[in-house]
Amino acid sequence: MKPSPTAWLFLTPALLVLGVFFVLPVIAALGLSLTDYDLYALANVHNLRFVGLRNYWELLQRPLFWAALGHTFYFVLVGVPLSIAASLGSALLLNSPLARMRAFFRTALFAPVVTTVVAVAVIWRYLFDTKYGLVNYALAAIGVHPVDWLGDPHWAMPTIIAFAVWKNFGYNMIILMAGLQAIPPELYEAARIDGASAPRQFWHITLPMLRPTLVMVMILTVAGYFQLFAEPYVMTEGGPLQSTVSVLYLMYEEGFKWWNLGTASAVAFTLFLVIFMVTTLLLRLARRGAGA
């Protein structure tokens, strides 16, 4: 087959869109983060000055930046393991030969994934209402005092994590189910003949065979969870006491509320670096673990 000159005609629309509206802005973001682009520069570009790494340096000295980074890590460190545990648990249940009405259960468990974050976050706000919410009402039945879920700085982030787990676990559940179905049934057959119990089968067959899928799912989920934004925007507006300000929430406020586009770009790039480092580290650890 010889090279086809028309290939570039097929590629041009997509590459043009990606080049102009993604690649170019990403490069520009790096440049922007080295300037003091603000409201004055927005009005007249001559007010723009190159400031080197000053935005980054000032960011590192702002308590709110560290707080936002801390909240985001909290969300990722607690939210990702809980999400994956929920996904794995439901995938195992759905994949069990004893399960009935699989198609129905799969659809029901997946439904939250396709819903609109903003709309379901609004629902959760009312479900977790201190006075009239169903959650506190149910808890009162077993003697728990009302909790101010979204108004208490200690409870706001856990509530957002619970929301994220509910909203997202179905996605990985589908991927993990496919992984489970790819495990050769002969392995379980042999284990049963050797008299291995169900937990031992899970530990010695299911988990090792599922490992590549689990690693992929974990890395994608970590990268996704670092981009926390809509949940605090709708559920708490970053509060109470800024306890749910995430890195992206900070970027949004800096950039589009205060119009400090230089600082906001530095925030965005820092987040990118953090995501890149964490996912690379996880990938390395996973590879080393697989070699051992």
Binding site: P25, V26, A29, L271
Partner: peptide, 10 residues
């Protein structure tokens, strides 16, 4: 690997 939000400001 580049989050879409990096591009949003420019």
């Amino acid at each position: 690997v580049i989050p879409a939000q990096v591009a949003m400001l420019p």
